[in-house]
Design a protein around this nucleic acid. Structure first.
Lengths: 294, 294
DNA sequence: CCAACCTATACATAAAACAGATAGATACTA
DNA sequence: TAGTATCTATCTGTTTTATGTATAGGTTGG
């Protein structure tokens, strides 16, 4: 490496300010420092960057060609410095967040937009695995944080912070035999096919399965599509079902015994390997206020 | 600017080689130099980059996050150095080449691919103005080099190097009254509409206009399209007309007096402001061998 | 021709980078 | 467990580099 960043800064500033002297003033240095700095840069590069035949130096063709690259380099150096500052101030360098599919939607996307504004330097990885897979990823440390509906006992290998609760409803497609009925109890569901979220490995959450006939689907969206086509009943988040309830392609089931709305706790789970930083704290605060949680 | 490029190089190499000592060996420096260099970098950034609790230093989370940025910075510095070297060795920093539309095609694109391989650092600007506009751009220095069919006397304001010649033919659409005829002489064209290339300012090359009825078109491709629809006759480069002659949508006109093929000189014109470099020489050499020129 | 600006350079000095040496820690091996 | 090799941090003196001051000389515009 022949040149150094101070030389490039002198180069860039000299062009910007119009003279070596002005650049020196801007840098808080003596004019001679800038002058020799640029001379050395020219020697290092083997090129004349400025034409000094007139009072104020003007760029040569070579200088013209290299200036944008030098500026890009300086900008990247500033980014690096900024990122280091942010991290020194307690921001994580990168953050891997695994969010269950059923929580994704406009509200979460808005949140992420605000997240980007608050932590522009941070490298975010957003994963959308199935519910059971989130737990595994966080336990392994592959993901720092996970957000998921959690109808289970606290397990080993992660910390947990409760968020609010998500309203779940029971739905069927409009042509399904149960559509439009008022059911005496949940038991009625027993003999109809249930559409069930599954992990990639085929695991299902303990309390999820009610029916003796199930189809397992990995994606919440695919699950809703199957329900719309009348292939079974399913428990789905209310906010995800709403557009289809509105256009009639899905119908909500009601029960005499009550329990039309089931509130499932949503939790933030935290990898033991994750060291909390500002971004994580911000996320916890904001996730606690997610619009569709009650 | 707090850190410097040597420190980043030490950082990157230490990760790559696995130890400060190995990095020092690779850099041809003493181990103490690398050790203090990295210590200073850590102080500058306000972050620990390495965990030194074991024999060989391992990256901290912060180091892990910043390494890619540091490497990107170094790579960009190398690009800058490489470009400077190339320019010191006589390569232009950037080159603006204006090529007449009728010369564009597979042969020229192949040439540009080879150009990119020969001069990967170089910043190329490729303009495709109409014929008359090329001359203006080169005269103004807006383009360094121009390539164009040049049926004109040498003008002021540029240098000229002749290339080979391009075969021009006279064509009409298949439904045109002249289609398929053997014409006694060019005079027969006089009373049919001519489709003529024009510059953006409406200028036409002196000898181009033969007919007393003309439509002027700015693009060679548009011109051929109009000819295909029988709207007039046109002089076009043989290599551009060939696909349409083959499928019958254009017909070539033949003359008893001969002159079915007119060979127009193609020239490279050079801006007075342009200082020839390796890339320009290469282009002149290769353009002289362009496949469709004879 | 002068005032106001610019650059390059000489020179002295302060700051930084560096190699060499050394001490202490860690890992591997016998 | 002792021995060897390799590692890092740090001290020390030296060399190199960066910088400010001072100065000489050039360009521009009134």
């Amino acid at each position: 490496m022949r040149f150094n960043l101070e030389q490039l800064r002198a180069f860039s500033l000299s062009v910007e300010k119009g003279s070596f002297s002005a650049a020196a003033r801007a840098m808080g240095k003596a004019q001679s420092a800038v002058s020799t700095s640029i001379s050395n840069l020219e020697l290092d590069l083997g090129l004349m960057l400025f034409d000094r035949s007139r009072r104020e130096p003007t760029l040569t063709a070579a200088g013209e060609a290299l200036l944008p690259q030098a500026q890009a380099l300086l900008q990247q150096a500033n980014l690096l410095a900024g990122r280091a500052d942010a991290m020194a101030a307690g921001e994580e360098g990168r953050l891997s967040l695994a969010v269950e599919e059923s929580l994704i939607g406009d509200a979460l996307e808005d949140l992420l937009v605000r997240f980007e504004q608050a932590f522009p330097q941070l490298e975010l990885e957003l994963l959308n695995p199935a519910r059971m897979d989130i737990i595994k990823l966080v336990q392994q440390g592959r993901a720092d944080l996970g957000v998921l509906v959690s109808p289970f006992e606290v397990d080993e290998g992660y910390h947990l912070k409760p968020l609010k609760q998500m309203a779940m409803i029971t739905v069927v497609g409009s042509q399904h035999p149960l559509a439009g009925q008022l059911l005496p109890s949940f038991d009625e569901l027993y003999n109809h096919r249930q559409l069930l979220l599954t992990s990639r490995a085929g695991k299902v959450l303990p309390d999820d399965q009610l029916s003796n006939r199930v189809w397992k689907v990995e994606s919440q969206y695919a699950l809703i599509e199957l329900a719309k086509r009348g292939l079974g009943w399913a428990w789905v988040p209310q906010h995800m079902a709403e557009p289809w309830l509105a256009d009639g392609s899905l119908q909500m089931l009601h029960f005499e015994s009550g329990g039309d709305l089931i509130h499932m706790p949503v939790d933030l789970i935290i990898s033991p390997k994750y060291k909390e930083g500002n971004a994580g704290q911000w996320l916890y605060r904001e996730l606690s206020e997610l619009a569709f949680l009650v």
